[in-house]
Amino acid sequence: MSQLKESLTKGKFVITSEIGPPKGTNIMPHIEEAEHFLKGKVAAINVTDIQSAVMRFGSLATCRLLVEHGMEPVLQMVCRDRNRLALQSDLLSAAGLGIENVLCLTGDHQVMGDHKDAKGVYDLDSVQLLAAAKGLTEGHDMSGNKLDGTPNLFLGAVVTPESEPVEPQIIKMKKKILAGAQFFQTQAVYDIDRFASFMDKVRGFGVPVMAGIVVLKSAGMAKFMNANVAGVKVPENLIEEMKKMKTEEDKIKKGVELAAKVINGVKKYCQGAHIMPLGWDKHVPSIIAQCDLS
């Protein structure tokens, strides 16, 4: 059974993290890094699916490698690149390869990536993908055909608490739950008060929410995200704190400290934190060490 599911069901405050496969076949260094820095420290490891629409090594294969190295993956699946036949087939494959956790997302538009001339598929949207996946767990495909072997899947979805307006996100979150979402990981959270008020609106849905933590690497990165990434708002005071850091070492220290501070801050409002280190995998243990997870 999925450890992630078990921990969330027991009401533990759960930490997950994330890796992004490389552009090319050099996957093993990433698996080794995960083994070194994440294994045993987080409940599960998300593997992004052709993240930012930049073509790269596959999520499903990476997830299987994590399983083989004794780690629990969360398979991310986006709707951009596959139609309903391929998506359902990959869900069956995932289950067959010992992967239970699946995070269903829409996916960044193809023009955001490095194959801007690609055809976007979006045969299903994230809500419909969740419904299809849930159907599979009930023993039938989207056309109602009976399966020969039913997958066990723990289905997750995403929500963006800092979207403005947030109401459409909340409406969609409800739909995702109706469709089959059993847990949520959020887009990056920095402002505890705003996150608390978001949680007030969705706590009644009764589905565990894990706050998304994007580790700040520099003031420049924060400013870039504020200007360019929808639904991400790094408060000015955090940017100021980051700005004071001159050496690389100090920046790492500060980034780690701020990430832990957010996790400690959101802890009483939600069921977990999902750390997106964006390449800073090796600093995840220090973040966790600074969290009060008792």
Binding site: T106, M112, G120, V158, I171, A230
Partner: peptide, 21 residues
């Protein structure tokens, strides 16, 4: 909708505009 989504917006909207442009 740039992605032709049927169940509501993705997380990509900002100031009422689409992530695509």
């Amino acid at each position: 909708c740039s992605k032709g989504l049927l169940n509501g917006p993705c997380g990509g909207y900002k100031n009422g505009k689409c992530e695509v442009d």
